[in-house]
Design a protein around this nucleic acid. Sequence first.
DNA 1: CTTTTGGCGTAACGAATATTACGGTTGCCG
DNA 2: CGGCAACCGTAATATTCGTTACGCCAAAAG
Lengths: 200, 200
Amino acid sequence: MRTEAREERRKEIAAAALALLEAHGYAGTTMQAVAKRAGASMETLYNWYGDKTGLFRALVSHNATEVRDMLEAHAGDGHDAIAVLEDLGPRLLALVTGETAIALNRAAATDQTGELGSAIASAGRETIGPMVEALFRRANDAGQLAIGDAQEATEIYFSLLIGDLQVRRVIGQLKPLTKAQARKRSERATTIIRRLYGPA
Amino acid sequence: MRTEAREERRKEIAAAALALLEAHGYAGTTMQAVAKRAGASMETLYNWYGDKTGLFRALVSHNATEVRDMLEAHAGDGHDAIAVLEDLGPRLLALVTGETAIALNRAAATDQTGELGSAIASAGRETIGPMVEALFRRANDAGQLAIGDAQEATEIYFSLLIGDLQVRRVIGQLKPLTKAQARKRSERATTIIRRLYGPA
DNA sequence: CTTTTGGCGTAACGAATATTACGGTTGCCG
DNA sequence: CGGCAACCGTAATATTCGTTACGCCAAAAG
């Protein structure tokens, strides 16, 4: 199989596994079902991914790079860091509370090894975090905000933006946010950040 | 079996199930293991709880009332609502990020029916929430804080206090908080609340 | 064109476990 | 003092997957 076709097949398998994961959860997603839906064989699944955990680990990191690419495309380099933040907020919310992210978090919740959790965390903490932190630094340098500790500001911003939405989604107590809800919540977060760090 | 002894046995079963849940997760906790550890029979388990989900549903609501009682004992009626909040903060954090709560949330994450999630949410949203909301109202009436919308203030407070700690605990990416960490985080939340709502 | 590699579809294997069944025992109740 | 209802300990039962094995085919390699 040419590398190109193989890459294509990987995406098909990932898509199949993800769809099943979102629909039936980790335990409810069987290798057979993934194989059937992807039009792949069990042999391929096990040769490529080792075991079930490996398949979903690949899923998580695949998804993580997608998220990163998507965000970097919108991290913007405009002069107005706050405007970028206001654009980024609803986008981030949609991502972290979307079906895909929630399904992956649910899977990680049942994974005793913690590997899935690590993969998820590295996408969030180590990729998205620094991106927002850089934004705050720029806002500080531009005199838009007076930020002492950019890392703490980032933590506070995420707390305000996301809060407990993810857990509530994970335990099935919250429907996906509408665009309006996401925008409102994002606005609240930026408003508070402005009040906390706004220049005197 | 006398009602008293039966109540005792219920507690033993709950304790056994909870211990196993914390150690091995929902899927890893078998009914056999619960029976053995509790010194109960399978027959009793199924007669009393119906099925495995029923057992854990009972566990959640049992735990919820315990949490509520524990908090109500400390909700205090002192004049200084903020002082009460500062005492409550670390306690709340310890609860929601503790082994028990996290294990129950993990279980709810795998429960397709959403029943476990509902039980958890009703403990949080419908019990703890109003309790804190009342505190804010009192602080407002006492002139300590100038709060327009007590419900929104509560949401913001919880976001700042808890943030994404629970998800991170659930996916195994965070160890239980030390007392010092909990205190620090609680202080940050109250400080910000004061800056947002402090009287002019 | 022949060989070989990789992959498909399906079936078989084994282990795990939710749920049910049952014989024996204990303690309440009339 | 019997009888009965509840409960214990343990053993089936039946099903569900993760994982492995295999026969066949297509396409890449030489």
